[in-house]
Nucleic acid binder design. Structure first.
Length: 913
DNA sequence: TGTAAACCGTAC
DNA sequence: GACGTACGGTTTACAC
């Protein structure tokens, strides 16, 4: 029988498990996250009962690659302490599990693995390399297979390598050389990624072929290639795994020892690996001395201790009444469950229900298809019947439910006749409260981040781009795996993230008292929608078009030729190359900018800039607003329904999209006209209520500056009061310019502005701006102290907090380059104020919603714009609503200064201001 | 044909 | 480099 060898890349798994898993600690506070991942992986390996195995790790010290290239791995940060602390315990556990450990100085673990793999393959042994490092694909060949247990991927032939990389295994080294590697600091061809590299290698076969044909490759990327030519041979050498390392023993010496059961029991207990301990005890009594082969044969029961890496789930597709009844019974018996809906479109206000999925324990999930429709689709349970069967658990407020972005599912189910109640947890919001700063909170990213798992992506089952199909056309078997996994992963993520929130009182408060209660409130606001007068907008579009045409003709005349007024590039060429006008502003990429500031600066030297400014203003209004908004009116409701994104802004603010109703113009007359198209229905009025200077009030609260607090307590115009202080004159002698300067300072401070920025804003000298700021701080010393304190806290702890405990982690404040750090400091200054304001208005929305629920037929909340709430109400209910709303808004946060709410009433949004 | 980046501009 | 947080339209370049 063929012998089998498993080579485990310990170094790669250690790093990957560390970064993929949450920073767990045991009861004594020792870090265990990476250890946990490794132990689970090794236990799975033992189940495979290989004849030979080894756990290979890097030895300390330099390797031959450092000699080849002094910059090798120069970008790699030192090993974090939490990881370093896990290395020795890891080796102890690996030893106890019976694995031979290999550490060879002068080469990397990769080279040891490569050498052993080839020796074994030559000797007829089947080799499996277990690693998280894709570079090993270069070793795939007959009898050498590559697996990644964390992602579940497997490569055992040129075909499987090609699926992943687009080239054969023997071309992988060349591919890596072309791509380079920023982590290991291997130089490659700039802007050449996996796609480009694979394309070249397919065309020219090898790196040498690419080098020989470098002259034939066009474009910027061709230039990049030619400039990088000289270092490609070095890159190839660095990327090549050695297969001729001198080793003491061959593969046949790598024999597994019996597990040291007692030692393992102590170690598992110490690090809190409950499931591993249970398995050990279950197997240990009967086969204490077995060499691991079938030692862990008993399947693990569902466990809350280590849901993260437990085996892939058993998913059921519910096709019969009996199955449905059985699942409903299980849901009724469960304390909590995760659910998810699948639909035929993205828009929550239009999409139809295609299926539902549920998970009650990690690994135990089901998919109930109700709307799959394709040739040959099997008969499915009736949608109404399924929803009726589930109605009890879904509408029961005492039954805790959780989801990922459940607001969407709440909309879909409401539109299909089911009112979800008891929506208790949401993994999107758990992630947002834990790490507001990260880019993505979608399920796939979270699964990778917190569970180290690769999930089935929507595009895997439905395709993408032009080839994308509706989920209703996805084969039920595929749909079931995808949908059940979504519910399963949601549940597992919840079990990992929720305890981390509960461990911090501030985060728990923000999550439990603000974000979760807000979910149904936002769903109601979105469902309410706002009435928009499409005819009015179309009239405005026509008017704007006429004026745009006039501006365009004038511009052509002034330029002496036609050009595309919408193209910054063409405009720049005309203004700065042909007309030789000065370029005072540069874009971030160093090009001459044609933005408003740049055009204003040259408006006195030529007529054209002014005409462009006119055109731009008109074009913006038409393309973004007057043309688009009528298209967004829902055919069923006749209203416009925006989406509010609760995890949209890192500071805790909401964002709005499809359409964005938080950037409707107000500053210019032409812009403000658009607000006249946001109207109240007949018999109703719009009521707009906005917080007056809420962020500055929060600055007064946080800084406790006596002067600023006093100014707000007195109720005077804050910018005028600031001007009076800074310019040392009575309130009624403050000039317009002085007030304008004070206002610029007030706002600039909240954004962490410098003297440079203030000078530019006010059109004054930098020295003068610096004088203003110094004067300001001398009058309001508490503000300066607050700024310094905030920066210091951010630098020391890496995060800042709002009054209510919301936390924003600033990754770049400690590790970034100077420019990134400066940016992080500005964000640190701003976030407590912007974030506290967001907390306050969210609290107000929740309490107003609960009041308005009893008057739902007479009034609705319809918009939120950061510091403003808009309602529509029956004429005879306006006064009642206004009084109640203002009271609830002003009492939504207890600050050292009063909260003041301004309000207005009108037939449209403009009038209500 | 589709997508991403660059640029610009609207809001608070 | 220089003012925080968003969304989105148009052009442009480029990969598929």
């Amino acid at each position: 029988m063929t012998k089998r060898l498993i080579l485990i890349d310990g170094s790669s798994y250690l790093y990957r498990a560390f970064h993929a898993l949450p920073p767990l600690t045991n009861a004594d506070g020792e870090p265990t996250g990476a250890l946990f991942g490794i132990v689970n992986m090794l236990r799975a390996t033992l189940k495979e009962a290989p004849d030979f195995a080894a756990f290979v790790v890097d030895a300390p010290g330099k390797t031959f690659r450092d000699d080849l290239y002094d910059q090798y791995k120069a970008n790699r940060p030192p090993m974090p302490d939490e990881l370093r602390a896990q290395v020795e315990p890891m080796c102890t556990i690996v030893e106890a599990l019976g694995f031979p450990i290999l550490r060879v100085p002068g080469v990397e673990a990769d080279d040891v693995i490569g050498t052993l793999a080839l020796q074994a393959a030559d000797a007829g042994i089947e080799v499996t390399i277990s690693t998280g490092d894709k570079d090993f694909a270069q070793l795939v060949r007959p009898r050498v297979t590559l697996v990644n247990t964390m992602s579940g991927s497997r490569m055992d032939s040129d075909d499987t390598v090609r699926e992943k990389f687009g080239v054969r295994a023997d071309q992988i080294v060349d591919l890596l050389a072309l791509m380079g590697d920023s982590i290991d600091n291997i130089p490659g061809v700039p802007k050449c990624g996996p796609k480009t590299a694979a394309k070249w290698l397919t065309e020219y076969e090898s790196l040498d072929g690419v080098i020989a044909n470098a002259g034939n490759i066009k474009g910027k990327i061709g230039e990049n290639l030619r400039e990088a030519l000289h270092q490609l041979p070095l890159s190839r050498e660095l990327a090549t795994i050695k297969t001729d390392v001198a080793l003491d023993g061959g593969p046949e010496t790598l024999i597994l020892r019996p597990r040291a059961i007692d030692a393992l029991r102590v170690l598992y207990a110490r690090y809190g690996f409950g499931q591993a301990l249970k398995d050990l005890d279950a197997a240990g009594d009967t086969s204490a001395a077995s060499a691991g082969a079938a030692a862990v044969a008993i399947p693990a029961p569902p466990s809350t201790l280590d849901p993260a890496l437990s085996v892939p789930g058993e998913y059921e597709t519910v096709m019969t009444r009996e199955q449905l009844d059985a699942w409903v019974a299980q849901l009724q018996a469960a304390d909590e469950f995760a659910f998810d809906t699948e639909t035929d479109a993205l828009d929550a206000m239009r999409s139809g229900l295609v299926g539902l999925s549920f998970a009650i324990e990690p690994g135990r999930a089901a998919y109930i298809p109700v709307g799959h429709d394709y040739p040959g689709a099997p008969a499915q349970l009736d949608r109404a019947l399924v929803l009726d069967a589930l109605r009890g658990v879904l509408e029961d407020p005492a039954k805790r439910k959780l989801g990922q972005h459940g607001k969407y599912d709440i909309h879909v189910l409401r539109r299909h006749g089911v009112e979800v109640r008891g929506y208790a947890d949401d993994t999107l919001l758990e992630s947002f409260v834990l790490d507001a700063g990260i880019a993505r909170h979608d399920l796939d990213s979270l699964a990778k981040r917190h569970l180290g798992m690769e999930t089935i992506k929507f595009e895997d089952v439905a395709g993408k781009g032009a080839k994308q199909i509706s989920f209703s056309q996805v084969a039920i078997d595929d749909a079931s795996k995808y949908a059940a996994e979504d519910a399963d992963i949601t549940l597992r993520l919840h079990r990992v993230m929720k305890p981390r929130i509960e461990a911090d009182a501030g985060l728990a408060r923000v999550y439990t008292d603000i974000e979760m209660p807000l979910v149904p409130v936002l769903a109601r606001i979105e469902a309410n929608g706002v009435r928009v007068d499409a005819d009015e907008l179309r009239r405005q579009s026509a008017d704007l078009s006429k004026r745009m045409l006039a501006a365009q003709q004038k511009a052509t005349e002034l330029a002496g030729r036609t050009f595309n007024l919408d193209s910054p590039k063409q405009l720049g060429a005309l203004l700065f190359d042909e007309l030789k006008l000065p370029a005072v502003v540069k874009t971030p990429k160093g090009q001459p900018s044609t933005n408003e500031e740049a055009l204003e600066a040259i408006a006195d030297q030529h007529e054209l800039p002014r005409v462009i400014l006119e055109y731009r203003g008109l074009a913006k209004l038409r393309s973004t607003y007057t043309d688009k908004l009528p298209e967004m009116i829902n055919a069923t409701t006749g209203r416009v329904h925006t989406s509010y994104h609760q995890a949209g802004a890192a500071t805790g603010r909401l964002s709005s999209s499809d359409p964005n109703l938080q950037n409707i113009p107000i500053r210019t007359d032409d812009g403000r006209r658009i607000r006249r198209a946001f109207v109240a229905p007949p018999g109703r009025k719009l009521i707009a209520c906005d917080y007056s200077q809420i962020e500055l009030r929060i600055m007064a609260h946080l800084s406790e500056d006596p002067g600023l607090v006093r100014a707000f307590e007195s109720g005077v115009d804050i910018h005028r009061a600031t001007a009076a202080e800074v310019f040392a004159r009575p309130l009624d002698e403050v000039t317009g310019n002085e007030r304008r300067a004070a206002k610029a300072i007030n706002f600039g401070l909240m954004y962490g502005m410098s003297a440079f920025g203030l000078a530019r804003n006010l059109g004054i000298g930098r020295g003068e701006a610096q004088d203003y700021i110094a004067l300001y701080f001398s009058r309001y010393p508490g503000v300066r102290d607050f700024m310094d304190r905030t920066r210091l806290q951010a630098r020391e702890t890496g995060y800042v907090e709002t009054v209510f405990g919301r936390r924003l982690t600033l990754d770049f404040i400690q590790k970034g380059n100077p420019s990134q750090r400066a940016g992080a400091e500005r964000a640190a200054i701003n976030a407590p104020m912007q974030g506290t304001a967001a907390d306050i208005i969210k609290r107000a929305m929740i309490t107003i919603d609960s009041w308005i629920a009893d008057h739902a037929d007479r009034a609705k909340m319809i918009l939120q714009v950061h510091d403003e709430l808009v309602f529509e109400a029956d004429l005879d209910f306006v006064d009642t609503l206004l009084a109640e709303v203002v009271t609830r808004m002003t009492s939504a946060g207890a600050l050292r200064v009063p909260l003041v709410v301004d309000s207005g009433i009108g037939d449209n949004w403009d009038e209500a201001h």
